[in-house]
């Protein structure tokens, strides 16, 4: 998880990333939403990456690179390496990298019909330090990939 995000949420606890790092390269206060076509799901550790091409308002193609949890984590949540195929239309919402304009951290992925294919599950939540306004667990079950199961 991200220290900047935690600071933004007024948490005092330091934070780690999903699999291996601090994620301070992402600014979780800078949300980004990308609608486009899947180029590739790169199924490698420490983080799977989703490459998406989006045509922007100027008609130019932006090549986006989104960080996902590790393939291990994704597999244990029901994903497979071909869960997203090249050409599929997706909407990815997430956080923008601080210094790289087309790199992001995916928090949710929806298909062309708006159905959630993925909601991020890499954040740490400590009930005793819950930020004001949050809804304590248990909350609505996020919709994960088909076959989702907790390890």
């Amino acid at each position: 998880m991200n220290r900047a995000l935690l600071a933004g949420l007024a948490l005092t606890l330091a934070a780690t990333a999903s699999a291996h790092h601090s994620q301070s390269e992402f600014d979780f206060r800078q949300g980004v939403t990308v609608e486009g076509q899947v180029v590739k799901l790169d199924w490698r550790s420490p983080h799977a990456r989703l490459y998406v091409d989006m045509v922007n308002a100027k008609g130019e193609t932006e090549h986006w690179d989104f960080e996902l949890p590790s393939p291990t984590t994704l597999m244990r949540r029901g994903w497979k390496r071909d869960s997203l195929k090249p050409g599929e239309k997706v909407t990815v919402a997430g956080a923008r990298a601080r210094n790289f304009p087309t790199i992001g951290y995916a928090r949710s992925i929806r298909d062309a019909s708006g159905k959630p294919l993925f909601t991020g599950f890499t954040e740490i939540y400590e009930p005793e330090k819950a930020p004001t306004g949050s809804v304590p667990a248990p909350a609505a079950k996020p919709t994960d990939a088909p076959g989702s199961k907790s390890p």
Binding site: R77, E123, I124, E126, P138, P142, P151
Partner: peptide, 22 residues
């Protein structure tokens, strides 16, 4: 395994011992 909802998004939290943080 718990869910946390913030700003409209429900997030599956990372499962790990919180001693990883401290």
């Amino acid at each position: 395994s718990r869910d946390a909802c913030r700003t409209g998004d429900c997030i599956q939290e990372e499962r790990m011992a919180m001693e990883q943080m401290n």
